[in-house]
Amino acid sequence: MNLTLHIWRQKNASDPGRMVRYEAKNVNADMSFLEMLDVLNEELTLKGEDPVAFDSDCREGICGMCGFMINGVAHGPQRGTTVCQLHMRRFKEGDQLHLEPWRARAFPVIKDLVVDRSAFDRIIQAGGFISVSTGSAPDGNAILVPKPAADLAMDAAACIGCGACVAACPNAAAALFTGAKITHLAKLPQGQPERYQRVLGMVAQARQDLFGSCTNIGECEAVCPKAIPLDVIAGMNRDFIKASWERREEVIEKGAG
């Protein structure tokens, strides 16, 4: 099939960028979307032009590296799928496809379709961890986890941090990502000691990185390649309210002083 691509080309972070039109000829329907771009890039390279930069790693839909907007939808038209697992059979002859990078203040464009998602790493550093004692390996089942809690934690832990939720959100909020990471650990016994510090830290970090505010509209849930539900955002809100109520630091500091 033959497609017309309109791709966001931006040399570097300071370049204003623009949409450039490319013709993709004789696209094989069995190719993945990224393979189609690989072919385009080979042609561009042979012509001496700069190939289109995009992120990818595993190409199995599990690493979270890839992702861009296809016709205004994060990861393209297929639900629950990263763009590397999207195949050209989803498109038809003559389609016009607009490819754009994730757009958010917190995700500055590095080049073309590649954005810097370090802001997600900073949110994780602000609380997305548990503390474990070193030493000999603990017994596998020493800490019991109820099956429903394990399932809910696993659902939330499926988040691969691709950033599609932020990209799809009209407010560029990181609520689904942050909520997934908080819920993942909040459901497990291992996550309890730091549970309320965690939510305060991660929520504050998301604000400092200039992510927007959630308006509960559900665009994030719809584009999430791991189909993580809005429920995790409510879980984050719940923990945030509880953590705000229970914070005692100021009182303790003054009392001890």
Partner: peptide
């Protein structure tokens, strides 16, 4: 916060799940 969080808007953006009201 919303306008600060996305200074460069999309050339093309579709709403696929949210209600018009929301």
């Amino acid at each position: 916060l919303k306008s600060a969080a996305r200074p460069v808007s999309y050339v093309k953006k579709e709403a696929i799940a949210s209600s018009y009201a929301s």
